[in-house]
Amino acid sequence: MTSETQAHDNQLFVKDLQESASLLVEKLQGNDYDEAARLIHSIVESRDKHLYQSVGRLTRGLHSAIVNFNVDGDLSKEPPEVDRSEIRDATDRLKYVIELTQSAADKTMDMVEEAAPIAMNLGQEASALRTEWGRLQTGEMSADEFRSLYTRMEDFLGQMESGTDQLGKNLQEIILEQGFQDLTGQVLKRVMGLITEVEQDLLSLVRIAGQVEEITGLHVEADNEGKARVVEKSSGEGPQINKDQADVVSSQDEVDDLLSSLGF
């Protein structure tokens, strides 16, 4: 619509210009300088008016491009609510990415730090026992030493059992922590979508600005109205970064409660 109005305005302006120009030539040839001066003045005025209109359109375009970023912002409000803008939303989403990656990195390192001494102790005890075992095989061991080796071996097997169990658990936790890649990926994809939208809106602005400069031009670019963001419901919404909202469940327990209320 903006482009159509702009084209129409351009046409009017050029028509005005052409009429005034031929009139001006006529007046000049007829030596009517007063009237010619008045005509020149009106041409300038008409050019200014056209320019103002175009600048006004640019401003409105800029405004609506900014408002377009709003999720459910009130369009009549001036200035538009930045709190609910998509840019702010994207910032929150990116913050969530940082939190999630940080927590995954922390937990993974915690798990490794917890596991490393277990593995090291088991390894040290195993090599110490192996040395003792060697002495036993070569018959260098006294009966007392053998008794101590006997209990030490039993302890070690116990440690081995609980240690490997713990190691297995930590390894599984580490695997599970990698789920951040999926969750952050979903969020990042959304932010990428927004960036593409912002790019398109900025392009629209560039076009509007181009039209302002192109006072005499009649070539109007294709309709560049910002397309409404259609979110297909069935495609899902991605991770909820704000779990405090009433319509969002904050834990698996709440999911279970909701499902059991539905007869599950």
Binding site: L183, G238, V248, S250, V255, F264
Partner: peptide
């Protein structure tokens, strides 16, 4: 899924 809206869970159910 990461989808955690109540109406989504109801829809799935």
């Amino acid at each position: 899924t990461a989808e955690a809206k109540r109406d989504q869970i109801v829809e799935a159910a």
